[in-house]
């Protein structure tokens, strides 16, 4: 019974994965190609690391990467703080005034087309500057404020769903045992959602690091992030040092994900073993 449908869906899965990975693999392969023509393999002089060397000595790219990292670090941290507050409020406070509004404003940015978010943020910054003289022009500050805003939605979702997995009576028990609300948050709630906060932070960092469209609107002259530099380069066609950059980024992400998967698997195994032992020792 499972055969026909199983074969079909499994074939689709294999083709789908090929579809997902071929472009990435092609970038990796051609990053070691000697030819400037990127897609023509120069067998005689490849593989070569010369595009990696070119990348490292490209001051514009390195400068933009540094700016992107700093913005992503601050944005991810800000998004985690605000997103955690939102997640806790939505998961734990029950009905309160402004709840519907808050829910709406946290889910909408996730799907909102970026051109709209970018345009609206810039127009807001311009109006704000007219009104109170702050923020002065566009730049790293406006980029960071914008990134915090669209990243916090993702953190909220992660934290909220993690909290939904825990019984609210944990917090009540702590309070019952004499802990005040602030203490309950730091001793009970926060430790429980730490994994969610961590993955939320990483997600926010990646989104901020990668964002092009919103950033373009709010960047202003003089502050070009890495995606902006890459975009203006690849608009003119393929460029081998971008392949090298992509390869580095893919490697870092893949290593990180594989490491975290192995760690999670180890944790799960240990947990399962513990639970089996506990069940065996049932009184």
């Amino acid at each position: 019974m499972r055969s026909s449908r199983g074969v079909f869906s499994r074939t689709a899965l294999v083709f789908g994965l090929v579809f997902l990975y071929v472009p990435i693999l092609s970038m990796v392969i051609f990053s070691f190609n000697n030819s400037r023509l990127v897609t023509v393999w120069d067998a005689a002089h490849s593989p070569t690391l010369k595009w990696y060397a070119a990348l490292m000595s490209n001051g514009q790219i390195m400068g933009a990467a540094w700016l992107s990292i700093r913005i992503a670090l601050i944005s991810a941290t800000g998004a985690v703080i605000l997103g955690t507050l939102t997640g806790v409020a939505l998961a734990r406070f029950g009905p309160f005034r402004g709840r519907t509004l808050l829910t709406g404003m946290t889910t909408a940015p996730i799907v909102m087309p970026e051109v709209i978010t970018g345009l609206s943020l810039l127009l807001m910054f311009v109006s704000l500057e007219q009104l109170i003289g702050w923020p002065k022009g566009s730049g790293a500050l406006t980029i960071t404020l914008s990134h915090i805003t669209f990243c916090m939605a993702y953190v909220t979702v992660v934290v909220q769903s993690r909290l939904a997995g825990f019984d609210e009576s944990l917090e009540e028990a702590a309070m019952d045992l004499g802990a005040r609300p602030v203490k309950v948050f730091f001793r009970i709630t926060l430790p429980l959602i730490v994994p969610g906060i961590l993955s939320g932070w990483l997600l926010a960092f990646t989104l901020s690091w990668d964002d092009l469209v919103i950033t373009q609107f709010v960047a202003g002259p003089g502050s070009s992030t890495l995606p902006m530099v890459i975009f203006s380069k690849v608009r003119l066609g393929v460029s081998p040092d971008v392949n090298a950059l992509a390869t580095i980024m893919v490697t870092v992400v893949a290593l990180g994900i594989v490491a975290s998967a192995i760690w999670m698997r180890y944790q799960n195994r240990r947990r399962e073993r513990d639970e089996q032992l506990a069940a065996a020792a049932n009184l």
Binding site: P23, S26, T206, P227, I230, G237, N243, A246, V253
Partner: peptide, 13 residues
Amino acid sequence: WTSFLLRVYAWIG
């Protein structure tokens, strides 16, 4: 988790 922009760019090649 890898760059959206770079994945689109890969299709040019």
